[in-house]
Design a protein around this nucleic acid. Sequence first.
DNA 1: TAAAAATACTCCATAGGTATTTTAT
DNA 2: ATAAAATACCTATGGAGTATTTTTA
Lengths: 304, 304
Amino acid sequence: MNLRDLHYLVAVAELNHFGKAAEACHVSQPTLSAQIKKLEEELGVSLLERTNKQVLLTDVGRQIVMKSQQILDSVDEMRELALQHKDPESGTFHLGIIPTLAPYLLPLVMNAIKERFPNLKVLLYELQTPDILKRLPAGKLDAALLALPVEHSALKSIPLFDEPFFAAVPYKHKLVKQKQVSPTDLVGNDVLLLEDGHCLRDQALDLCRKVGADEVEGFRATSLETLRQMVASGHGITIVPQLAIGSTPSRMKQIRYLPFVNPKPSRTIVISIRHSSHRHYLALELGKIVGSRIEAVVGNKLID
Amino acid sequence: MNLRDLHYLVAVAELNHFGKAAEACHVSQPTLSAQIKKLEEELGVSLLERTNKQVLLTDVGRQIVMKSQQILDSVDEMRELALQHKDPESGTFHLGIIPTLAPYLLPLVMNAIKERFPNLKVLLYELQTPDILKRLPAGKLDAALLALPVEHSALKSIPLFDEPFFAAVPYKHKLVKQKQVSPTDLVGNDVLLLEDGHCLRDQALDLCRKVGADEVEGFRATSLETLRQMVASGHGITIVPQLAIGSTPSRMKQIRYLPFVNPKPSRTIVISIRHSSHRHYLALELGKIVGSRIEAVVGNKLID
DNA sequence: TAAAAATACTCCATAGGTATTTTAT
DNA sequence: ATAAAATACCTATGGAGTATTTTTA
């Protein structure tokens, strides 16, 4: 059976004339007749009663024509569906973002994204890197914003910006006197870190290990905010990415954020997408928006 | 687009694997791949995201697959519909019957018809010949029981039985003395007839004209039963077909029914059907039942 | 007899097959 | 390195055409 055959049948049923139906379908009368006949043979029932003067629908014929009409309508709906999704900047986009980035980056970029892609529904998922690396390759996410390294062969990662780390120290800490700190300054201090799963934990831990600084035992913060509270309460120092500092220096006055000396340690924020995805262009555009917003909001640059 | 393509798409969506899907569809993998690709091109959207390790549905893909499933289900329903009507002794059969036959014949045959065609829904339409000759060629009826002549080139009429006419005379009428009557006996009597449209009127009128008998002026009965009431009331005599007499002689004792001498005038009851109809066999079978029931019920024969 | 569907046949587009290459993990 | 989809290319089915015949009202 063929959708074309159903068109032919419906045309004959509407026009009650093989010749006119053939014309309406832009085929010759014998072609249409043959296809109708084949359809009847395939279904095993007579659909039409023909003479040279009139064409009559049989009982089954009438019912089959109605079904055909229904099927053809569904096909039209399918085509309509496809048409609605033809615009690559429409539809739904599932975007994962790591928790140490989401609350600080999103306020900066969401309006711009909405403006640039008015027809795109961007659904946000705040997830830790391991979770993202499960969901993104599995197709549950379309793309994700995370920090290098992204170790998954199915994914392609486009760097968006480098985000320098800062030392977060309590107001009364001895380091506050310095304009800048070196990683070695961490040694001897109680360094507080996030719990497992946060890539920021790994990055900060790397920095500590290089200089021999120690993580404080027995505590792992579940979020950057609780971590910051611990620092404010004088329980130690920590390392935070620049965006988390916030543009308003009035916020959380018990903490001072000290830049590192060159070469400034940092993390590279990327947008990751499956190699096989058909939405690379969209990811790229999203990345551009993020990059330009970072540049615009944070002053000049977070080094791109 | 092709229904086969939709099958391929649904198979891939279900199995997440082109090779397995191809196997399930009994085609080669390249064939299936090519068709899916064509479908995507025709719809103008990507339906699937493929790597060598996994096949993912896109957003549109998911929706198109659902539509496809719906369409394929409808096609199955269509096939089911056809299957249900494949039995020629099933479905609905619209049967027209003239009013001077219906009330007398139907009680004799309907049970037998129901028994012979348990899956056939026979819908009865009591209609005068002109009405039948409009509806039957137009396909509103499948067949009809009427009396010759049936003048319509699109129709084929199969004789079922000859139904002799009887003279219906009041109990006290002078003709009652005779065992038989001749058409000439009608002359000089008030002959009551049916109104226009009833073929029985034409047939009786023919008989009168041949011998020079006159129809009574100013009265035309709307049914055989009212006509019979008129005879019983002594307003004249009439001509009735045998089946109308009824098997119970106790019925309407004020009337005597007198047979005609040979050659007995009669009408030929036929079953008519369009030449183009696909249900000749069914009409023939119905005719057979009517014939055999007539023979069984009326004693020996109404001359077949 | 005339209008319309069916038949006969020829042709070509395309679905399908096999062998091979490319791709991505 | 390997599994799987894509590509290349050939084949053959069947949908479409024209010319003609058959049917039937």
